[in-house]
Design a protein around this nucleic acid. Sequence first.
DNA 1: CAGTATCCGAGAGGATACTG
DNA 2: CAGTATCCTCTCGGATACTG
Lengths: 147, 147
Amino acid sequence: MSTQQPTPASPADVRDIAAEGSADPAEFPFDVLEVRCPSRPVLEHLTGRWGGLVLIALRQGPSRFNELRRLVSGVSEKMLSQSLHALERDGIVIREVHSTIPPRVEYSLTPLGEQAADKLWELVEILEDSMPQILVAQRDYDSAAAG
Amino acid sequence: MSTQQPTPASPADVRDIAAEGSADPAEFPFDVLEVRCPSRPVLEHLTGRWGGLVLIALRQGPSRFNELRRLVSGVSEKMLSQSLHALERDGIVIREVHSTIPPRVEYSLTPLGEQAADKLWELVEILEDSMPQILVAQRDYDSAAAG
DNA sequence: CAGTATCCGAGAGGATACTG
DNA sequence: CAGTATCCTCTCGGATACTG
């Protein structure tokens, strides 16, 4: 209840896997290219419209809700809230509540979250550095289609 | 005409930027956290539901359309076609047509595409390796909410 | 401040049928 | 084979209003 589920993703068909002590990661061939692989929804949380940007913003350090809203420009309260819940559920983001008045809630990255955020950031760096080249490619493509 | 545009993204408001010889990348603060930054749509092509998976599949080498469909399990013709067009427009993927009968079309990565795909792959590796841990986190989160 | 609840439109995305 | 065109559904996601 409460929120609209971030992703139902039928946890039932994933079986117990790591719940057993026997969990040897090598035994389970998680493959993101496979439709049914549970890694798919997780990747989508990271690479969805807002998830990745949230992680990149959190690389700068812990951040509060409205601070994040400002950092990730364009995100709505609803989407930020939803993204944070999904990432928290995946163990990528930590939500820490300080029961003061006014309430203070801080979001930060778990170690896993930091690893992921770093990779995401490296990807974004490549992208931002290549933007001039990309804009040219887009223009060429469009004029070729039009001409 | 032809396809539904991958992303209109009003190239007009980007101005000429790299079209001029003066393009010094350092002059242009592309920032993916900014709503209006043209890097946003490009990132979304890479990290959208299918774009990233296509890139990862293409790391294994050039691939034909239906081959890609099989590699990226779950993708529809329409979405694969759309994703490939967007990536081609961004200069991330190359489409090569061999006018034989039957027609043979091969998709491959540009140098930029390879850089991006490698980063994406590193991210996915982290994810796949962490899946057992993530599944536990999800279960804990869910049972905490239910209990 | 830090969210949740509800409503609603736009578009993502799937299924099917068709073309070169 | 390699797509495009069309239809249609369902979800994403924005706007607004409200709560602790």
